[in-house]
């Protein structure tokens, strides 16, 4: 585990550096605040409506699909390392796994989930 020391130190150094830089800016500059400056930027208009508004369900869908497929990649990684050792049986298992995923992928493609222009087909 000792090799992870570098990672931990790296996290600490980067965090401290970021905080110090942010803090230094608040100390070095003069602040003259007014109401207009403190409201959300909307091209010079007074803000209308809420920023917490409904957004395109497509973004949500992409995130869900990403979760599934990223997990798939994570499952493939052990095979990538031990695959040579596991021989033909390992390869067959991998191809089966991939086949199931490809079926899922084709299904979502056919459903139009990957078509950004027509979320109404869902």
């Amino acid at each position: 585990m000792i090799e992870y020391l570098g990672v931990i130190v790296y996290f600490m150094v980067a965090t401290v550096l970021g905080v110090v830089m942010f803090w230094a800016a608040t100390q070095c500059s003069s602040q003259r605040l007014d109401l207009e400056k403190l409201t959300a930027y909307e091209c010079g208009y007074d803000a209308f409506g809420e920023a917490r508004s409904p957004f395109d369900v497509g973004f949500y869908l992409v995130a869900i699909l990403f979760l599934v497929f990223d997990l798939e990649v994570a499952f493939l990684i052990p095979w990538a390392l031990g695959g040579v050792l596991s021989g033909w049986a390992g390869l067959a298992a991998l191809l089966l796994f991939l086949a199931v995923l490809v079926v899922g992928f084709v299904y979502e493609w056919g459903k139009g989930a990957l078509d950004w222009n027509s979320p109404e087909t869902l």
């Binding site: 959300a40 930027y41 909307e42 803000a47 409506g49 920023a51 917490r52 508004s53 957004f55 395109d56 497509g58 973004f59 992409v62 995130a63 990403f66 497929f69 990223d70 990649v73």
Partner: peptide
């Protein structure tokens, strides 16, 4: 956290794009 429309839309796009290409 910005609670601004432009920031929110930008972040939606950014995140969707980044996770899509992480795959």
């Amino acid at each position: 956290a910005s609670n601004s429309k432009y920031a929110f839309l930008g972040c939606c796009r950014s995140v969707a794009q980044m996770i899509s290409y992480e795959l």
